[in-house]
Simulated assay, not measured.
Amino acid sequence: MSQYSASIITHSFWFTEFSQYLELRNQGIDDVDIRSMSIDDNYFQQQSTARALDMVRVVKRRVNTLDIDYFDLFPSLDLENQKIVNLLASLHLNRLFDEFMYEVYRNELLLGDAKLHSYEIEAFFSQKQVENEKIASWKEETIRRMAGTFKTFLREADLLENQGDYDLVKRPLLDIRLEMLLHTKGEDRQLAALVGR
């Protein structure tokens, strides 16, 4: 498993860009050419060259955590399940986010409470700080931004809905083909997090 990293706080969910990138790859366009399109033609319509570089680097890494089976399935999935594929690719790249999904989001589904409060997120990070020296060394601002990023990603994936004092936890309607693919690929942990097993 990868090292803990806080780099996700500088990233966006980038679902539209992720979808476009996958479509280009499905057309046979390679990563080098997609990067050139992003920088030279501003294909992904980013506000600056620096942002375009950052976005294309992160989205490329997400896409490259997936294999041809995901590439083939993605275009036929509905919007909700496509967003979940983007979320899964993000989980592949961030160990702490993956653990958050399994330990916090899954727990909400299992308990049936369906209300995620700030204190529950704070408790998760506090526990991780106790367990891991690297996370313990992070500034409070970093922890706060990580928590905010996790919530933003889950809201954009339609798995959380902001209710003001808490977030409503929404159980996704996973496409059976995606569910079977996750199982086939040995991603039972991620599948359990999404469906509350």
Score class of each variant (00 low, 15 high):
71 F>W: 09
71 F>V: 00
72 D>K: 10
72 D>N: 13
73 L>W: 06
73 L>H: 08
73 L>P: 07
75 P>E: 01
78 D>W: 06
79 L>D: 14
80 E>S: 14
81 N>E: 10
82 Q>G: 11
84 I>Y: 04
85 V>Q: 11
85 V>Y: 11
86 N>T: 04
88 L>K: 05
92 H>L: 00
93 L>V: 05
93 L>Q: 14
93 L>R: 14
93 L>W: 10
94 N>R: 05
97 F>A: 12
97 F>R: 05
98 D>H: 08
99 E>L: 12
99 E>W: 06
100 F>A: 02
100 F>I: 02
102 Y>K: 03
103 E>A: 06
105 Y>L: 00
107 N>R: 09
107 N>V: 00
108 E>W: 00
110 L>K: 14
111 L>V: 03
112 G>R: 08
112 G>K: 00
113 D>M: 08
116 L>Y: 02
116 L>I: 00
116 L>C: 01
117 H>T: 07
117 H>S: 07
118 S>D: 11
118 S>R: 15
119 Y>P: 05
119 Y>N: 12
120 E>F: 09
120 E>H: 09
121 I>Q: 09
121 I>A: 08
122 E>W: 10
124 F>M: 06
124 F>W: 12
125 F>A: 01
126 S>V: 06
127 Q>F: 09
128 K>V: 03
128 K>L: 05
128 K>G: 06
129 Q>D: 04
129 Q>I: 01
129 Q>T: 05
132 N>D: 13
134 K>C: 00
134 K>G: 00
136 A>V: 01
136 A>R: 15
136 A>Y: 13
136 A>M: 08
137 S>R: 14
137 S>N: 13
138 W>I: 01
138 W>F: 14
139 K>M: 02
139 K>P: 01
139 K>Y: 10
142 T>H: 03
142 T>K: 04
143 I>R: 07
145 R>K: 15
148 G>I: 07
148 G>N: 12
149 T>R: 15
150 F>E: 04
150 F>G: 03
151 K>E: 06
152 T>A: 13
152 T>R: 11
152 T>Q: 13
152 T>L: 09
152 T>H: 09
153 F>G: 07
154 L>P: 07
156 E>F: 11
156 E>S: 09
158 D>V: 06
158 D>C: 09
159 L>Y: 05
160 L>D: 04
161 E>N: 14
161 E>P: 01
162 N>E: 12
162 N>Q: 11
162 N>P: 04
162 N>S: 13
163 Q>I: 02
163 Q>W: 12
163 Q>S: 12
163 Q>D: 09
165 D>K: 15
165 D>I: 06
167 D>Q: 10
167 D>G: 02
168 L>V: 02
170 K>H: 07
170 K>R: 15
170 K>Q: 14
171 R>E: 14
172 P>N: 04
175 D>I: 02
175 D>E: 04
176 I>V: 13
176 I>K: 15
177 R>A: 08
177 R>W: 01
177 R>Y: 02
179 E>D: 12
179 E>V: 01
179 E>N: 12
179 E>T: 13
181 L>M: 04
182 L>S: 07
185 K>T: 04
185 K>L: 09
186 G>S: 10
186 G>W: 08
187 E>P: 04
188 D>C: 09
189 R>I: 09
192 A>H: 08
193 A>W: 03
193 A>I: 03
